[in-house]
């Protein structure tokens, strides 16, 4: 018997996003690090912080640790992003 069956998936397409403009240089910039706070990330971001400042002339490194590593960043962290020149987030581990 011929059947007509329905698609069970979410067929809606998410709104398309565009990349932010890239930077000419890291020198003198403010970089925000958003850490999920999982084991090991502290050491990783500490090295990253030092390398960004010492080797690439980054003026400010601001580290924020999420309250919940399985959720998007807390609203107060998201509110800070607009004041930064770039963001490094992680770790997906």
């Amino acid at each position: 018997m011929q059947l007509q069956v329905l698609d069970p998936t979410n067929e809606a397409i998410p709104p398309f996003g565009e990349l932010a403009p890239r930077l000419n240089s890291l020198a003198g910039k403010t970089v925000g690090l958003i850490s999920n706070g999982k084991e090991g990330t502290k050491g990783f971001f500490a090295h990253l912080d030092r390398m960004l400042r010492d080797d690439h002339g980054v003026a400010n490194v601001i580290t924020r640790v999420k309250s919940n590593y399985s959720a998007p960043a807390d609203p107060h962290i998201v509110a800070e992003i607009a004041g930064w020149d770039a963001v490094v987030s992680g770790l997906g581990d």
């Binding site: 996003g17 932010a20 998201v78 992003i81 770039a86 963001v87 770790l91």
Partner: peptide, 14 residues
């Protein structure tokens, strides 16, 4: 989220 706020960003994954 940062890209949508016009701030360039990079995620780090294992």
């Amino acid at each position: 989220t940062a890209e949508r706020l016009k701030v360039p960003a990079i995620g780090v994954m294992t």
